[in-house]
Simulated scan of single mutants.
Amino acid sequence: MSKTDPDRIDDALIALRRILRATELYERDLAQSVGLTPAKLRVLQLLALRDRDGATPTALAHQMGVSQATVTALVDQLVRRGYVARHRSASDRRQTDVVITPEGAEALRTAPNALQQQFVQGFGAMADWEQAMMIASLERVAAMLNAEGIDAAPVLATGDIRMGRPRA
Rank of each mutant, 00 (worst) to 15 (best):
M1K: 10
S2V: 07
S2D: 07
K3E: 13
K3V: 13
D5N: 14
I9T: 14
A12K: 06
L13N: 12
L13E: 12
I14C: 15
I14H: 15
A15T: 15
R17Q: 15
I19S: 09
I19G: 09
R21F: 15
E24Q: 03
L25T: 13
E27N: 13
Q32S: 13
S33T: 12
G35T: 06
L36Y: 01
K40C: 00
L46C: 11
A48P: 03
L49K: 15
R52C: 06
R52G: 07
L60W: 03
H62T: 14
V66T: 02
Q68I: 07
T70H: 02
V71D: 00
T72C: 04
L74W: 06
D76S: 12
D76C: 03
Q77F: 02
Q77I: 00
V79F: 02
R80G: 05
H87D: 14
S89G: 06
Q95F: 10
V98T: 05
I100D: 00
I100S: 00
I100A: 01
I100M: 00
E103H: 10
E106T: 03
T110C: 05
T110R: 10
A111Q: 03
A114N: 12
L115A: 03
Q117E: 12
F119Y: 08
V120I: 12
W129N: 12
I135P: 06
L138G: 14
R140V: 04
A142I: 05
M144I: 05
M144S: 13
E148C: 10
E148W: 10
A157H: 03
R162I: 04
R165N: 10
R165P: 05
